[in-house]
Design a protein around this nucleic acid. Structure first.
Lengths: 194, 194
DNA sequence: TATAATGTTTAATACTTTTTAAATGTTAGC
DNA sequence: GCTAACATTTAAAAAGTATTAAACATTATA
């Protein structure tokens, strides 16, 4: 759950420990972010990498990530790729180095936008596809005169239920469009800080 | 992945097979639902139980679930409890039986409402709590005269970044309120079927 | 084109989660 | 308060996932 940086429980605040305090505070927030991402099916270690990149002022290399998180380089390679796939981390280029460099999306609104529209789009796609296939099969079945009245009733109830669920998927599609166009942020506007 | 009901690959549509067709079509849709729920961190078997309950016209007992899904009763007990916790399944009472009976929430809009507001509320709670703790620690630190100028700058940058992220969590809280009050469905209205 | 630096794949291991059988609790009705 | 019918907990096994070291592939540049 935690990386293995040494804690100084009960130590007094002496000059040499001051920087530890920043690291501890940062760790606390990063762990909360990781726990949060875990809610949506992102593993804690990938979440912690995102948090680490989020608070990093400069792009990081795989070697820096592995040192920072105490994990292997292949692990970092896989984790960073998964964050790239989610589009919440970008690869950047920098003169003078051959290493790949990565930065995190620092705007949580954009994070929300890209994260949920991807998930919701997939939900729509997977379910509407299955529904379409099922409807085709049901229609073939309903044309068959050998179908008993009870089974016909059952097939029609099922057909009705999935037809009906399309209303939801169409709404979800509108929500995605609203999120991607930015219109959702007009409907529910973020409040500036005071 | 699949339960072990026998498939009739390549069989012709003969009267005895007709009901199999309904089951197959239903399975297809249920598996899509399970795959979808998996996107949000719900395991496929819990998702499949939800799908099964979703298409069931009557409340189901644990024994019926175990027969339908070919799993053990304790598994069903755990799965159903997790669906109860998510508030997407309800326990119902029926005269004449001592068995517990369960029904699925059949309105996907309500499902969306309860599912995402729970997740988002938890996201807000966990992160704002960590941020508050971090801010307290940072303020103590920033009062300390022994803090080097570089570390002070680092602490202030970090403080600024987490202060700033509160704008997002406040917005998310507004989104939750809008979702729970039903106002989101006025802003982005579902379209009736034609 | 050679080589040194870097990233990725593979295959094995460790870890976590899911599932179950057996044991235990709980409850309703007699 | 017993008993029978159920649900749940526990402990172990099975399955699945994450992590790594080692091998391999790729790339940049001299």
């Amino acid at each position: 759950m935690y990386n293995d940086k040494k804690r100084n429980r009960g130590d007094y605040l002496v000059p040499g420990r001051l920087e530890e305090k920043i690291i501890q505070a940062k760790d606390k927030v990063i762990n909360a972010m990781a726990e949060t991402m875990d809610l949506y099916g992102v593993t804690a270690s990938i979440g912690r990498l995102y948090g680490t990149l989020y608070f990093q002022q400069y792009p990081m290399t795989l070697d820096e990530m592995k040192d920072e998180l105490g994990m292997s380089k292949p692990s970092m390679s896989l984790a960073v790729r998964s964050l790239l796939d989610m589009k919440v981390v970008q690869k950047v280029w920098q003169k003078g180095t051959r290493k790949d460099l990565y930065v995190a999306e620092k705007d949580f609104f954009k994070f929300f936008q890209v994260f949920f529209s991807t998930k919701w789009r997939r939900e729509i796609e997977v379910n509407l596809h299955a529904i379409d296939e099922a409807l085709t099969e049901l229609d073939t079945l309903l044309e068959n005169p050998d179908l008993s009245p009870e089974k016909k009733k059952e097939a029609e109830a099922f057909k009705q239920q999935i037809e009906n669920s399309k209303v939801y998927y169409n709404w979800l599609d509108d929500l995605v469009k609203s999120l991607e166009s930015g219109r959702l942020f007009e409907l529910i506007p973020p409040k500036k800080v005071d």
